[in-house]
Amino acid sequence: MGRLSGAWLKSKLKFLKNMDCPDQARCFEILQLVLDEEADEAQRERFELQIKNCMPCYKRYNLDVAIKDVLKNKIEVKSVPEDLVDSIKFKIKNAT
């Protein structure tokens, strides 16, 4: 029984994984609003429901979160050249 259930679940998951979201343009729009903390309450509620029931949306959202996270945390932050602030202040002093 356990083995049957496992096989059924696996095939179901495979089916869901390959399935397209029936309303993806609208859903992806809401996923982006949630991702960027721009969604209102109704959009957030729809999002919660959607990712529980739709594998493509669930996958899409998790991927978007991961990419946003690596962009924020893995891209090198350049140091400001030491003389830049002094150079700006010097030019302003001379201009006033």
């Binding site: 992806f28 899409r60 998790n62 991927l63 996270d69 690596v70 893995k74 090198e76």
Partner: peptide, 20 residues
Amino acid sequence: VDETITTDLRVETVQHMIGD
């Protein structure tokens, strides 16, 4: 829109990429 452009990009792959 979005068709199949990223279906084979995985979260773990992205997380393991380096900054460069």
